[in-house]
Amino acid sequence: MNRNAFESLDHLTTPHLADGCLRAGVPVRCGPAGLLPLSPGMRCAGRVRPVRHVGSIDVYFEALEHAVPGEVMVVDNGGRRDEACIGDIVALEVKAAGLAGMVIWGLHRDDGELRDIDYPVFSLGSLPTGPQRLHSRPADLFERAAIGPHGVTAGDVVVADSNGVLFLPADRLDAIAEAAIGYRATEARQIEAMRGGRSYRSQVRFADYLSRRQRDPGYDFRRHLREIAGAGEV
């Protein structure tokens, strides 16, 4: 993973990166739509530090024994909505260890205190009560976390912002970032042209697309955009 590609994540939104995945031929892995930041404007990006919660907060402290500053702790609590699995003590400890943030497939508690800490936490929401159960520890407790339908490991990078949460394979990050930067530049040109009075439809020759589709019903808009992009027209 190129250092410049990783640093570019600070300047790319998750929508830019999701489109970068599409252009680079990488499957898009988004966290479910309900996975949101505690406060507007929160953002974090870093290597995944996976943790599977089994009912006790000691798993987080054990994970920190091996964590590297700049990572993002990704917590798998199975999407449970009957218990909160982290609170202010855990968040303060993770922050003090230098991790960039937390993404939780579950709920948090101590909502007001967490907001005061002002540390990036993404979760499914809040609930007053913590776990009232303790399950056995799986062998891969610190190796893999599930977030919705996606399994993530230390071989992944996570980027989370107000749009949502996106997981990227670290070994494809260079290609994704390059494609995302290209997409962002194209979008910026289009928006600037729109502000100058040139509609998006005229920029992408929408009338030509409709005419072509009338002749060829199988012709779709994505193909049209690819063709005019290939000709350097957008």
Results as ranks from 00 to 15, higher is better:
G218E: 11
E227C: 07
C85E: 04
A231T: 04
D208V: 07
R226L: 12
V90D: 14
I147N: 06
E93V: 01
A180S: 11
P120D: 05
A175K: 04
D140G: 04
C21S: 11
P27Y: 10
G164R: 02
M42N: 08
R137A: 11
V72E: 03
G46P: 03
L99N: 03
N77T: 10
I181D: 02
Q214T: 15
F167A: 12
V121C: 07
R213V: 07
A24T: 11
P40I: 03
F122W: 03
F61G: 02
Q132A: 13
D10V: 02
V234Y: 00
V94E: 02
G148N: 03
Y60F: 14
R172L: 08
S162F: 04
E71I: 09
D116W: 14
A146K: 13
T14F: 02
P217E: 13
I117L: 15
V121S: 08
L22Y: 02
H135A: 14
R201H: 10
P40H: 04
V72T: 05
H150Q: 14
H150N: 12
A188G: 00
D58S: 12
S126H: 12
Y209K: 01
M102W: 02
V234D: 01
T186S: 04
A33P: 05
G20A: 06
R47Y: 13
E233N: 03
K95E: 13
G34A: 13
G55H: 01
M102R: 06
R47A: 12
H66Y: 06
A179R: 06
V74K: 05
N163S: 13
L92R: 14
P131L: 08
S199Y: 08
R29Q: 12
Q190Y: 01
A229D: 11
D19G: 02
V159W: 00
L134W: 03
Y60R: 01
V54S: 05
S136Q: 13
V121I: 15
E71K: 11
R189D: 03
I228V: 10
M194E: 14
E187M: 12
I104C: 14
D156Y: 04
L35G: 03
S202W: 07
T13K: 00
G20C: 06
V59Q: 04
V51D: 00
D88N: 08
I86R: 03
S162M: 06
M73A: 10
D208H: 07
A139C: 05
A175Y: 01
V59R: 10
G106Q: 07
